[in-house]
Nucleic acid binder design. Structure first.
Lengths: 103, 103
DNA sequence: CGTTTATATGTTCATTTACTCATATTGTAA
DNA sequence: TTACAATATGAGTAAATGAACATATAAACG
């Protein structure tokens, strides 16, 4: 079964723990988008992007629907953006403290 | 240099993306603790725990001070607990939705 | 039908991760 | 000093990850 405590939380964080996947989430913050829009926005291999999207979907962070040839992805729970915002604040404070140590 | 956007955010999430490290954070939510308290609470190899602590410290999530033979660790920014709480809420909703699909 | 477009997947490879065991380091005490 | 206690680190290994390239699938269109 799941094994150690916090396995699910760890999986969720792991899904977000990649620059490309975070960038995907940021792109989808505006609203749902097809792969054909996401790939050029990221400027990387389509197959690579597809795998990252698949991972985020497998972890329940994204959902998808088909529209003709296109596959449209969207963020399932907007609280993932809270995660991103909080992380940014933590980092900002971290750097701020280190900057002040040099003054 | 850092390379792609969101490298730092990704590193922060990656540091948290492990069941043992999340459990360490939960243990330290009560307050600072020495390794000698953390190891038995986790029930795993001391060397293993030490590495996870070192990782969390390297990423700026923990800080440490020495007290005689003991090394005391503590969480630097309590907003990491917001991350954990938000993650749990996201998961709770996720499971709740799936449960309702079976009714 | 065959062709084109959008997306997913198989395979290979190099890198990273997490773990274990043994050893090193550091501080304390007899 | 020697011995011990707490913690960190080196080395080895198995597994997971991410990237690239080629190929497969699926839907639309002529």
């Amino acid at each position: 079964m799941p094994g150690p405590k916090y396995t699910y939380e760890a999986e969720l964080f792991k899904a977000i723990s990649h620059p490309t996947r975070i960038e995907i989430l940021k792109i989808l913050q505006e609203g749902e988008k097809c792969v054909c829009d996401i790939v050029p926005a990221l400027g990387m291999e389509q197959s690579n992007v597809s795998r990252h999207l698949g991972l985020l979907k497998k972890e329940g962070i994204l959902s998808s629907r088909k529209d003709g040839l296109k596959m449209i992805y969207r963020v399932e729970d907007r609280r993932v953006f809270e995660l991103l915002d909080t992380a940014r604040e933590i980092l900002r404070k971290y750097w701020e403290e280190r900057r002040e140590m040099l003054l």
